[in-house]
Amino acid sequence: MADVIQTVQSKFPGAILEIVEYQGERTLVVQPGRVRAVLGHLKQSEGFNFLADISSAHWPEEGRIDVVYIVRSLKSREQLRIRTPLPIEDPVVETVSDLWGTADWLEREVYDLMGVQFTGHPDLRRIMLPEDFEGHPLRKEYPMEGDDEWRNYVPPETRENRE
């Protein structure tokens, strides 16, 4: 594991902002602009062939959205987490859906619920929510019951029966 991080560090100097270790898991905090390069290197040269998950977290006080990739090598059973902090005003990161097929829907989910843009994604649409939904529910400021408009939303076709 240590040499993976070392090679990444030597290959992409300055890309790794921080290395966090907790409960035996390593997290590399990577600059947003270089995530794709680092992940591509991990896949092609280090054998991390399995993308387990893409997730995200919103930190309103820090004004950032984290996008988290969990990659794994099925051969050596190593697992690594890549986290990248994106600014809240403009959360954009390059897609990795061409590296792993898994990323396609996972990125769409993050886009739908968290509002992160993935440049280069072939088909970035909402996946969980209807197309006419506004906002991104997993952001902290979004109320759980939906905002005022959406809370009492009834699909147009079904409306008249309510009267």
Binding site: M128, P137, Y142, M144, E145, V154, T158, N161
Partner: peptide, 14 residues
């Protein structure tokens, strides 16, 4: 009690 769930089907059909 979430943003995506209809709070009772009687909003839509009897």
């Amino acid at each position: 009690n979430a943003y995506s769930v209809v709070q009772g089907i009687d909003h839509i059909i009897p």
